[in-house]
Design a protein around this nucleic acid. Structure first.
Lengths: 370, 370
DNA sequence: CAGTATTCGTTCAGTCGCTGAACTTAAATC
DNA sequence: GATTTAAGTTCAGCGACTGAACGAATACTG
């Protein structure tokens, strides 16, 4: 804990107002005062700062019924700090630029097999793509990089699918760079202002990862390794997994064990049987997760989203059978609609979260680089 | 989020100082200023309030080497608010009174089979025990009740081992009552100022529960159901469990599946084989937990603590085999030394946590009841 | 033993941020 | 055009922290 002073009060209230503006675009200063409980004078003072710093913009007079002076509409500034997100996959580098509202403003995709390629080489591509997106004429407040492996601090400790280890993801761009695991990044992409704030995203991309979101924040674990769902044991006598152990979920529900969507749609019996098995095993593993964490919403992403229609049945059956709290609040299972862009999108939004969380410091720092 | 004002600053800094005093008993005001970063004037003002409110006491001049005026030692007041904790078990009601430092000052145990007994009857016993402990002449700041079942809010939704359901744990005592799951309560008892702040307590009492502590706080889940380790599936073709599913950890590592300590010490082959199996299955389930949450310390409690010498081997072997992050930070497994009192102790300490977390509000409320 | 150096704790003016009330501005209604 | 209602601004006041100055207490020094 740090000592607190009046500056912290201002920080807190600035963030509070920015969040209120985000949630209620077009509202007036008076409306904000009513919503937040702050005095009108305080709102005026803080909003003026946010407007001066380019985070909030006045959108013109607000529509009202009845008499009285019309308020000035406020909304997130479209020219505020944008986020750049880059996802490094085994066969692609996908990037996007998101505006302050979280919408995608530009995209870049560089195809090519990164497996075994030198990290420096790939990071040079990443840097070029970031620079290209940052040159769009909008301010960039942060850059995020999603990688398929174990991340600690800004270092990718191990990425079996890329055959990388101990790679320091340090880009030479003038803004903060955040590094995240791919599943965690994809999980953050599902976090929407009006959506659930507690869920697990299951990300089927080569391995099986999970991003666990509790009250809008990622559960990262002590070292940042959390979410390794793929190596939950679902059958101690099962087949040997790449990790050395037996019966990991990945051997049943990883990409290698899944059929194509085409084969499933054709009703291929082998495909359907594989999906039945994958769904059941996923359900078994996720029941364990739900029993442990009491997080009642499951979002299927990646390959599992594409195959969701065939996975839902066995998955839900297994959840109903095994989740202890199901009687009081049955878990819900849905499929992500974000597609391949999820990881880049999530990490792009996360890259500017520090500004959302503490706009006052950002404004004081005046650190609009790039 | 709420709007913040100067009051919140004071709240925060009061809590900061109380925490510093707790961690450094006997320190002076000047020392606190150096530790916390607050100005001496602020420390004086806040400490005076804490002393006036009975939370902190001056312990006399502090020993110092070198010249200069000697400071006045400060420490948690031994006459500050105490906590009362009661654990309701299947065959006992165990209670204790803890002082502000967390030490046990008095105990009560009422033996007797609560299984199937009317909840009102048992709660009457609980109330009597609480009143008895509260009548010790020390102020009581909160009461906690630990129960073996699913808890939401102050309601025990379901306790299969007691055959209770939907019981509102509302005691007529003049202080706040907190209700917690037994495993969670036992987990909180392991939380010590100088100990780890991230761990999982596995509580083997009839069922198998877990209390997950992350950064000193319990992970309760969305509804408060988190920690149901006992029904993690460790073998989909295993024996049927009381919950209806197959292969739950509880059927391998629950009390019913464990031998007595005596049998194990005697080297009984059947007992040893049961322990080998229980240890392996525990390791399998806990590997999943560690992979999911990246919480690298496991504390065995209850029956598992008593049988720990026989469980450690297979448990650690399984963890080494299955935990993905083990290469960078191998999990550690230890046994709890708290014994049967753990749940009552943990919930007693938790019952006064609201005062620790916000002493200023407590003092303003002047709510020293009982 | 007196003087000095050093540290503890308090006092006080100063600053900063929030507040409530008064005031100004602006739009709708009569 | 007057009136009513609401938005936004101005301003004195308050509470909390700060830094410097001060008084108090102790140990060292000659």
């Amino acid at each position: 804990m740090r000592p607190a002073g009046q500056l912290d009060v201002r920080r807190h209230n600035s963030a509070l107002l920015l969040a209120a503006v985000t949630a209620n675009p077009g509202c007036s200063r008076a409306g904000l005062a009513a919503m937040t409980g702050l005095a009108k004078a305080t709102v005026s003072s803080l909003v003026d700062h946010l407007v001066a710093g380019g985070l909030v913009a006045e959108t013109g007079p607000v529509e009202r019924t009845g008499r009285g002076r019309t308020g000035t509409g406020l909304a997130l500034s479209a020219t505020g700090p944008h986020g750049v997100g880059v996802a490094v996959g085994v066969d692609h580098v996908t990037a996007c630029l998101v505006d302050p509202l979280g919408g995608v403003r530009a995209r870049r995709v560089r195809s090519g097999d990164n497996r075994g390629r030198a990290p420096e080489q790939v990071l040079a591509v990443v840097t070029r793509v970031v620079r290209s997106l940052a040159g769009q004429g909008v301010p960039v407040g942060g850059v995020g990089v999603a990688v398929p492996g174990l991340v600690r601090g800004g270092v990718l400790l191990s990425a079996p699918n890329l055959d990388w280890s101990e790679v320091d993801i340090a880009l030479d761009v003038g803004v903060p760079v955040t590094v995240a695991n791919e599943a965690n990044a994809a999980a953050l992409a599902e976090l929407r202002p009006d959506g659930p704030r507690d869920y697990v995203l299951v990300s089927g991309e080569v391995g099986v990862g999970a991003g666990i979101v509790r009250d809008g924040a990622l559960l990262t674990g002590v070292h940042g390794f959390a979410g390794e769902l793929g190596h939950l044991c679902v059958d101690p006598t099962g087949p040997r997994c790449g990790c050395g152990a037996r019966g990991c979920l990945e051997t049943y529900a990883g990409t290698a064990a899944l059929p194509t969507r085409q084969a499933a749609a054709n009703g291929d019996p082998e495909a359907l049987s594989a999906l039945e098995s994958a769904g059941t095993r996923l359900g078994q593993a996720l029941s364990g997760l739900v029993n442990l964490l009491d997080i009642p919403t499951i979002v299927l992403g990646g390959d599992h989203a594409r195959l969701a229609p065939w996975l839902f049945g066995p998955l839900r059956a297994e959840l109903a059978r095994r989740v202890i709290g199901a009687r009081w609040s049955p878990p819900t299972v849905v499929a992500s609609t974000l597609g391949r862009e999820a990881a880049a999108l999530g990490v792009a939004r996360a890259a500017v979260d520090h500004i959302r969380a503490d706009p006052d410091s950002y404004l004081r720092g005046a650190g609009q680089a790039l």
